[in-house]
């Protein structure tokens, strides 16, 4: 059995992913900033000039609060899903704990995420919303989101080993998700009966919490936080269980 230094291994795997990604980009970190800025401008143009709306103020930061979590979620989930199958060489040759592969992939996306959160917070300040005590909730809600992504990725990455179509299902789910979470519309526009359901989706809950904290300058409601914590922990537990059940046969299917 593998009895090594988990933290050291995780650190090395995350650093590896990060270095490989950025060493081959001449503009490096700039690309992490460009994508959300372009999307933000495009959506702002569509929803202030093409379909003008009068309810949402500060549309650029409103939409950026949706884009940053959405981008993180889709990139981490898609890369994580294929991580076990793509690292077949490693899985078949080195007895490392298998869970570490998808988790390291998700965590390496967090470096990218940190840059985008930096952008989001700067934009919030540029738009005249100052720093306040409620910002202390930010690490909590982001932490729960990362837990959720790790959980769902453990599940899909293990399934992807057995059925390689899972990655395409995940891809389609991400496209669909852009419309099904409130990235560019307000939760207030969603009929009440559906709105309660939205809060159980950790991604939607995170976006709502971010808007409350950064735009309204308030703490997220306790029901929202509880639902976010409940569904993130549940998904992570189920993910670990599924992965644990499926990992024994990885060798035969890779």
């Amino acid at each position: 059995m593998w009895k090594g230094d988990y933290l050291f291994l995780l650190e090395n795997l995350v650093v590896k992913d990060f270095k490989i990604r950025y060493r081959n980009m001449s503009l490096g970190v700039f690309w992490s900033l460009l994508n959300p800025l372009v999307m933000m401008s495009a959506l702002t143009f569509v929803f202030t000039a093409v379909f003008p709306n009068n309810q949402i103020e500060n549309f650029p930061i409103f939409v950026l609060c949706g884009l940053v979590p959405f981008n993180f979620f889709t990139v981490a989930w898609q890369n994580g899903t294929i991580s076990v199958a793509n690292n077949a060489g490693l899985i078949k040759r080195v007895p490392v704990p298998r869970e570490i592969v998808p988790i390291a992939t998700v965590l390496s996306t967090c470096v990218h995420l940190a840059i985008q959160i930096g952008l989001l917070l700067s934009m919030v300040i540029v738009f005249g919303r100052g720093v306040n005590w409620h910002w202390l909730w930010l690490p909590v809600v982001w932490g729960l989101e990362i837990l959720f992504v790790c959980g769902i990725t453990l599940m899909t990455s293990a399934l992807d080993v057995y059925v390689r179509d899972v990655r395409y299902v995940v891809e389609s789910a991400c496209t669909l998700l852009f419309w099904m979470v409130p990235v560019f519309y307000a939760i207030q526009s969603v009929p009440q009966s559906y709105a309660n359901l939205y809060q159980f989706n950790p991604l939607a809950a995170l976006i709502l919490a971010l808007r409350t904290i950064l735009i309204d300058g308030d703490s997220p409601s306790s029901t929202l936080l509880l639902k976010l914590a409940f569904s993130s922990t549940l998904v992570f537990a189920v993910g670990l269980y599924v992965f644990h059940r499926l990992k024994r046969q990885f060798f035969d299917y890779l």
């Binding site: 593998w2 230094d5 050291f8 090395n12 490989i20 081959n24 060489g89 080195v94």
Partner: peptide, 25 residues
């Protein structure tokens, strides 16, 4: 060398491979 990556330097690969094989930091 199954844990090696061509874009990392020799030094980085040593540390990565060491952690894969279960070395402590």
């Amino acid at each position: 060398g199954s844990g090696f990556h061509p874009d990392l330097t020799g030094r980085e690969n040593i540390l990565l491979n060491a952690s894969l094989l279960g070395f402590s930091r």
